[in-house]
């Protein structure tokens, strides 16, 4: 393969593979020769995506990541069927809008289950010697980790938790040859973004008029950066969170 990025025959696990950034990433990883292992709840979408890929070693495993207790078994099963993992990208996420007066700890917990706990649980299991060939873990965080936003407290906190975990895991997993990073997109043209615009109406739409700080990028662009972080070209990058919004803070 003549690509700058070569992920030939690497087993890469992608959560949130059925939509948005995860879906674009699956297609990009397929282009770079990886064996992609997809996780999300919607099986129909996963089948459709798998059928659109060129590679023949791609697999999907429908799973609700809010069920944290079943994750270790799921990864064990995946490794038995596909061999050890070379990379893991956590793109599964929820981004609900909820003003503070309605943001109960139960609501925060629901967000944390998918955005944070499932990420650290998969990372914990990935890091066991029997499950990896070293490799690279990438979390899809958000600029929401750095800057606050109206009615987004639970989401911002969950992404800040992810970035904190990334820095700690990078140190602890160095000895195992595992790099851990995150990307922090601003606004990405996906279903999550569509949902945000629908809920916010004109108030939300107006935020994107003539405002370079709110540049909307395409999921394929984020997928390229993640692919780079997964590749050996990024061998010196670990413990960092990359702002991927095409404009900066």
């Amino acid at each position: 393969m003549n690509n700058y990025i070569d992920l030939s025959n690497k087993n890469i696990l992608v959560t949130g593979a059925s939509s948005g950034i995860g879906k674009s990433l699956v297609k990009t990883l397929d282009k770079y020769g990886a064996n992609v292992i997809m996780i999300a709840r919607n099986e129909d979408k996963l089948i459709e995506i798998k059928n659109s890929l060129n590679g023949t070693n791609n697999k999907y495993y429908p799973y609700d990541l809010a069920d944290i207790d079943g994750i270790e078994q799921l990864i064990k099963h995946i490794v038995e069927e596909n061999g050890k993992l070379d990379g893991y990208v956590h793109s599964a996420g929820v981004g609900p809008t909820c003003p503070i007066n309605l943001t109960t700890y139960k609501f925060i917990h629901e967000v944390m289950l998918v955005n944070f706990y499932s990420f650290v649980e998969i990372s914990r299991v990935y890091a066991k010697k029997k499950n990896n060939n070293g490799g690279s873990i990438v979390a899809v965080s958000s600029m929401a980790s750095l800057r606050g936003d109206n009615a987004k407290m639970a989401y911002c906190a969950s992404k800040a938790a992810v970035d904190g975990a990334v820095r700690a895991l990078a140190v602890e997993l160095k000895a195992k040859g595992i790099r851990v990073n995150s990307v922090q997109p601003g606004w990405v043209n996906t279903e999550m973004f569509e949902e945000y615009l629908k809920m916010g109406g004109d108030d939300a739409r107006n935020r994107f008029k003539n405002n370079p700080k709110n540049t909307v990028v395409e999921p394929e662009e984020i997928a390229e950066t993640i692919s780079f972080l997964l590749s050996d070209n990024a061998s010196v990058l670990s413990g960092i969170s990359m702002i991927t919004n095409a404009v900066g803070l």
Partner: peptide, 26 residues
């Protein structure tokens, strides 16, 4: 204001199972 409109969307979903949009609120 815009925050109470967001609150109404969440309330409508949580208490009445209805998905209200920003445009419908208008």
């Amino acid at each position: 204001d815009s925050m109470s409109k967001l609150s109404l969307i969440v309330l409508m979903n949580d208490e009445f199972g209805k998905k209200l949009s920003g445009d419908e609120i208008k």
